[in-house]
């Protein structure tokens, strides 16, 4: 895979190193000559000095054959325009932009950038993982099926408490497949089974249904 990383700051440099370690072909474009000399010490010919928004630079760097174009400068406008030029002029199949202002996410999406990453989101998701208030956790991703196995514990304040398992309204084709009881015994979701505190419910769902399932089983609405 050929990945172009536009912007050789801390984020772009680190990302380039990680991709190189992963065995990908990488080119990190950095505008500032001094900064570029610094990252070239480590990245060697995987670094390139130039303005990532200029058509001639993207031509020189072989953007036309890039699989992914990632713009991670500290300037949202630069990241947007670089991605748009890469996509419109060089037909790069996937463009990813770092956004520094989270409010720009929707704008970038409307203007054709395939994915955005912002540090606020990353930190928020890290915090969310540590929080006990969202107890739905993924146990297993079933490779190639787009499906995953999740679990949720029935707590004393859970909306599941006392509910009949087969009457729960679940999104799409998500289904509960197993209930692990407090005494470690295992039950299938037969009719009439009411959920009790201390039980763990295992559900099969699809990645895109996970937020809705989370809401159904925990009562916590997605952000």
């Amino acid at each position: 895979m050929y990945v172009i990383v536009a912007g050789g700051g801390k984020v772009g440099f680190g990302l380039s190193q990680a991709l190189l370690a992963n065995g990908d072909e990488v080119l990190c474009i950095e505008k500032d000559a001094h900064r570029c000399a610094v990252i070239a010490e480590d990245l060697g010919s995987a670094s390139y000095q130039g303005d990532c928004c200029e058509v001639s630079v993207l031509e020189d760097t072989g953007t036309g054959r890039a699989d992914v174009f990632v713009a991670v400068t500290g300037d949202d406008a630069d990241n947007l325009i670089a991605c748009q030029v890469a996509k419109a002029r060089f037909r790069v199949p996937r463009t990813v932009a770092r956004i520094n202002d989270p409010r720009n996410r929707e704008i970038f999406s409307i203007l054709g950038v395939d994915a955005t990453v912002n540090s606020t989101d990353v930190i928020m998701s890290q915090i969310a993982q540590e929080m006990p208030s969202q107890p739905l956790t993924q146990v297993l991703s079933l490779r190639g099926t787009g499906r995953e196995l999740c679990q949720v514990e029935v707590t004393a304040d859970s909306p599941l408490l006392g509910e009949e398992v087969n009457l729960l309204r679940l999104p799409g084709d998500s289904e509960i497949i197993l209930i692990v009881c407090a005494d470690q015994s295992v039950r299938t979701p037969e009719n009439g089974l009411q959920l009790e505190a201390g039980q763990v419910v295992l559900a099969l769902t699809r990645e895109e249904q996970e937020p809705a399932l989370r809401e159904a089983l925990t009562g916590v609405a997605p952000e």
């Binding site: 080119l27 390139y48 072989g62």
Partner: peptide, 14 residues
């Protein structure tokens, strides 16, 4: 050791 290097433009794979 004699080395002959062909510089490959980035528009094509190495």
């Amino acid at each position: 050791h004699v080395l002959y290097i062909i510089e490959v433009p980035r528009a094509v794979p190495l």
